[in-house]
Computed example of a mutant assay.
Amino acid sequence: MDTHGPVCVGIDPHPALLETWGLTDSPEGLRRFALTVVDALGGRVAALKPQSAFFERHGSAGIAVLEEVLAAARTAGTLTVLDVKRGDIGSTMAGYADAYLRDGAPLAADAITLSPYLGFASLRPALDLARSTGRGVFVLALTSNPEGHHVQHAVAAAGPVARQMVDGARAENDIDAEAPLGSVGLVVGATVGAAAADLGLDLAATRGPLLAPGVGAQGAGPRELVHVFGDARRQVLASTSRGVLAAGPSASALRDALGSAVDSAAAALR
């Protein structure tokens, strides 16, 4: 983030975008799309965020492409956040952790997204493995989909459900305020408005990175980033997908779109 700016670009090869790029909805179209993004933006962006679902829908051939994309990003020296939103219990959660966070795993990424709604403590295998391998996780806290607030804003005996995710991340990081951000971050949508303030969430106190989807095509811009994150804005990694990807397949156009996104986000988050 310090080197390339506070922007993460999603690699979301959904069928409509493949068609816009003149590519077939096939493993080969998927491969050309994703590797074009890596080639154009690798070494120029804080992180790339492949959306696993769009690779999984092509079966084993799609997963093979995802492995290739993660390897290409590593070669380019670019961090990856694999958007898998996994969440389970016991040995199953340990299996997911092993798949994405173990050194040498074919699908190993620098960070993954996790769903904590079987209880924050159910994520323990992933939290521990990420820490031991120097990787990170982003735990869903306040998502931008309209259905999310029915669960995330609900109030239990311990307070709002989303606060439990914030408290869990803060406890995991537990680092000095002058130290770098910890390895346990949160997903907080850039379009959630005043939700964090209304629920009494101290996002800055987590001392972890805040992945903020919804920037660009989903409607969030500098004003929304400031409104949502306030004093925590310097912890934000703003995530955009269509706002940059729609400029492709030209590599120069993708880079120009990235530059515009970085300039806009940096002005709000400084």
Rank of each mutant, 00 (worst) to 15 (best):
M1Y: 10
M1F: 09
T3S: 13
H4E: 14
I11A: 02
P15E: 10
A16L: 14
L17N: 03
L23I: 14
D25S: 00
D25P: 03
S26D: 14
R32E: 13
A34N: 06
A40H: 03
G43N: 01
L48R: 05
S52H: 11
A61N: 14
A61H: 14
A64C: 13
E67A: 07
E68V: 14
A71V: 15
A72N: 08
T75D: 09
L79H: 08
L79Y: 07
L82M: 03
D83G: 05
K85A: 02
I89N: 08
I89L: 15
I89W: 12
T92H: 09
M93S: 02
G95F: 14
A97Q: 05
D98L: 13
Y100G: 02
L101W: 09
R102V: 11
G104C: 10
P106N: 10
A111N: 04
S115H: 10
A121P: 05
R124I: 07
A126K: 09
L127C: 07
L129C: 05
L129R: 02
L129M: 11
R135V: 03
V139A: 03
Q152N: 09
A154T: 09
A162T: 04
R163S: 11
R163Q: 13
R170A: 07
A171I: 15
A171D: 15
N173M: 15
D176L: 13
A177R: 10
A179N: 13
L181G: 03
G182I: 14
V184E: 04
L186I: 06
G189I: 01
A190K: 00
V192N: 02
L199H: 04
G200R: 03
R207S: 02
L211D: 01
Q218G: 04
G219Y: 08
R223G: 13
V228Q: 01
A238Y: 00
S239L: 11
S239V: 09
S239D: 10
T240L: 08
V244M: 03
A246D: 11
P249D: 08
P249L: 10
L254M: 12
A257S: 06
G259S: 11
V262C: 06
V262S: 01
S264V: 07
